[in-house]
Amino acid sequence: MTTTEIASFILLLTGAVFFFAGTVGLLRFPDVYTRLHALAKADNLGLGFIMLGLLLQAPSPATALKLVLIWLLALAASATVGFLIARRARQNGIVPWQSGDRR
């Protein structure tokens, strides 16, 4: 294995770990707001690492640019959609979980 392959391997695995953490957060966290934290942050980082790992295997610079473009679009989408879901939840009177509450 070349150094590039090893680096790509590590980046891809790191990405998968973040996706896994995001899913665990989704399952464990107590309300929609905390779950949004988990998904918006961990999954985006996961996608970022997967993108970087694949970038090292990209067959051409054009494909590499396309990967970066996809990632930036996904980032923008998550940021806006995450904010809108949280905002709508609050408008609809969903009360945030407090640390004394039962899960």
Binding site: V17, F18, A21, G22, V24, G25, R28, F29, P30, D31, Y33, T34, H37, A38, K41, A42, N44, L45, G46, G48, P96, W97, Q98, S99, R103
Partner: peptide, 24 residues
């Protein structure tokens, strides 16, 4: 900062003890 944010929330999700203190 988003790297920090991702690592922080991943740690909160994966650590065995549950330690969220949310607020608005």
């Amino acid at each position: 900062q988003s790297l920090r944010g991702g690592i922080q929330v991943a740690w909160l999700a994966l650590r065995p003890r549950f330690s969220l203190r949310p607020a608005i």
